[in-house]
């Protein structure tokens, strides 16, 4: 009883000094992505003197722009605690539906509308099964990944379907020296960045991804928001599918094959947390560039594809370790 302290002098241990601002800024996954990006540019410039040609990099980016565009929306889906692996198959099926409509004589605008509607419908179908029937999105979208790709093959068969000349070549349209797909990616990044970062809709996505039960208690319409996200992803995938069709000049069922992994890779590299609640559009934006820089750098340096794959794998693992480390430090 002798060592009872004066309450006025007792330290209030919960009131620790807030973290300094520079640490909040520096210890973020996006910072890591940016650092890797700078490192990648530096390494690339050492590997080859031709690498630092901005036009070449922009051109290379058009090859990834379609996946990158979908990855932006996918980032929001992952932050909301879900995932959609069917996006690349959706791209293929939407493009096939578009090309098929075109082939049967529908005018171009109508065909485009049909292709986009197909994508939207696929997104809604995912949403219906995942939210309506309360099933895990990873399993459901592995199912629809296979289903959509199979339907694409039924429609297109083993042949390529030509698309009309007027539709071809979006990647050769330059606005201010920048290819149109890259412009679209940048604009969409800004728009979605603002939606996710500054609107109530964006905030509620984080709430749902952090704790869906609590979000529903707080009056967040989590089902509606998730349906909107899946539908948007479906529509965006279809759009990306049409961009790809325009770039390639023809449509085959294997368009964008394996693209879902590239999309997830971009989101993860950008620091999006696979279990939801964390991540930013900025991160995915930077990660898309990182992926392009690294891949292009290795191609310019004439590395064997096998080595390129290993580098990408290692990169992903490093980013996951770093992201996890950063989040676990801020957890307590």
């Amino acid at each position: 009883m002798s060592n009872v302290e004066n309450p006025a002098l007792a330290p209030s241990r919960e009131v620790a000094a807030p973290r300094p601002a520079w640490r909040i800024f520096l210890i973020r996954p996006e910072t890591m992505t940016l650092a890797l990006l700078i490192l990648g540019v530096f390494a690339g410039s050492q590997l080859s003197e031709f690498f630092l040609d901005i036009n070449y990099i922009l051109k290379s980016f058009t090859l990834y722009a379609e996946f990158a565009i979908v990855a932006l929306v996918l980032t929001m889906v992952i932050i909301a605690g879900e995932i959609d692996l069917s996006a690349a198959s959706n791209m293929a099926l939407s493009a096939c539906v578009f090309a098929y409509a075109q082939q049967t004589g529908a005018p171009l605008p109508i065909s485009i509308a049909i292709g986009l509607s197909a994508g939207l419908f696929m997104g809604l179908f995912n949403a219906f099964i995942i939210i309506g029937l309360k099933l895990p999105s990873i399993i459901v979208t592995i199912g629809t990944l296979t289903l959509y790709r199979g339907l694409a093959q039924i429609i297109a068969g083993d042949k390529s379907i030509r698309v009309p000349e007027s539709f071809i070549g979006i990647n050769n349209v330059f606005i201010g020296g920048i290819p149109a797909p890259v412009i679209i990616f940048i604009i969409l990044s800004i728009v979605l960045g603002l939606v996710l970062g500054t609107t109530i809709f964006g905030r509620q996505i984080y709430l749902i991804g952090t704790n869906e039960v609590a979000a529903r208690h707080a009056g967040v319409r989590s089902k509606s928001i998730k349906i909107i996200l899946f539908a948007t992803l479906g529509l965006t995938s279809a759009f990306a599918g049409l961009l790809t069709a325009s770039r390639l000049g023809s449509v085959r069922y294997d368009l964008g094959l394996g693209g879902e992994l590239q999309m997830v890779l971009m989101a993860m590299l950008g620091g999006t947390y696979i279990f939801g609640g964390r991540g930013t559009i900025l991160g995915t934006f930077l990660a898309a560039w990182l992926l392009v820089i690294v891949t292009t750098g290795m191609i310019v340096a004439n590395w064997l594809p096998a080595y390129q794959l290993c580098v990408l794998g290692v990169l992903l693992i490093i980013s996951i370790i770093a992201t996890n480390f950063i989040y676990s430090r801020t957890e307590r």
Partner: peptide
Amino acid sequence: AQSGIFRTLAVEQNITAAIAK
């Protein structure tokens, strides 16, 4: 823990979670 807080989000976001408008 289950139906109240958003553990990893900032205190201010937790406090304003139900007053979106």
